[in-house]
């Protein structure tokens, strides 16, 4: 019952409308970000510059958190959805992957484990030493 209520609250037309507008606002930030990046010859994706701008505006309390929180949280919750088309792109490389896929799979596996172990252990060691462990 509680869950059903939550769902109806989630699909309220007003909320969907607000989310769409807020996603539009967030998109404008990434657009401005890529414009500034080109203008200043920064070698940075526009979306990251846009994120920096939004963060600074939020911190300076120029831009209210409430104006983007519904759309923003929806985007973050459904992050995997936006990666699906790039995963489907694998079908273009079936030939190449058929040939070298196993080698690449092993390289990426070992390398990913290496990155995870080294970064995770470094962080764990520092937080333990610093006595700041949670």
């Amino acid at each position: 019952m509680k869950k059903a209520l939550q769902i109806t609250r989630m699909f309220k037309p007003r909320r969907i409308f607000l989310a769409l507008i807020q996603i539009g606002i967030l998109y404008i930030f990434s657009f401005v970000g890529s414009f500034l990046g080109k203008l200043l010859h920064l070698n940075f994706p526009g979306s990251l510059i846009g994120m920096g701008i939004l963060f600074i505006l939020l911190r300076l309390e120029i831009f209210p958190y409430n104006w983007v929180v519904i759309g923003g949280n929806w985007l973050l919750a459904e992050l995997l959805l936006f990666f699906i088309p790039s995963v489907v792109a694998i079908m273009q490389y079936i030939q190449f992957l058929h040939q070298d896929g196993l080698d690449l799979f092993i390289i990426i596996l070992i390398s990913t484990v290496a990155v995870m172990v080294s970064s995770g252990l470094t962080a764990e060691m520092i937080t333990r030493k610093g006595g700041k462990a949670l």
């Binding site: 967030l26 994706p45 979306s47 923003g72 949280n73 973050l76």
Partner: peptide, 8 residues
């Protein structure tokens, strides 16, 4: 916009 939303 999802990457921008990481500012939140």
């Amino acid at each position: 916009p999802a990457i921008v939303a990481f500012a939140l």
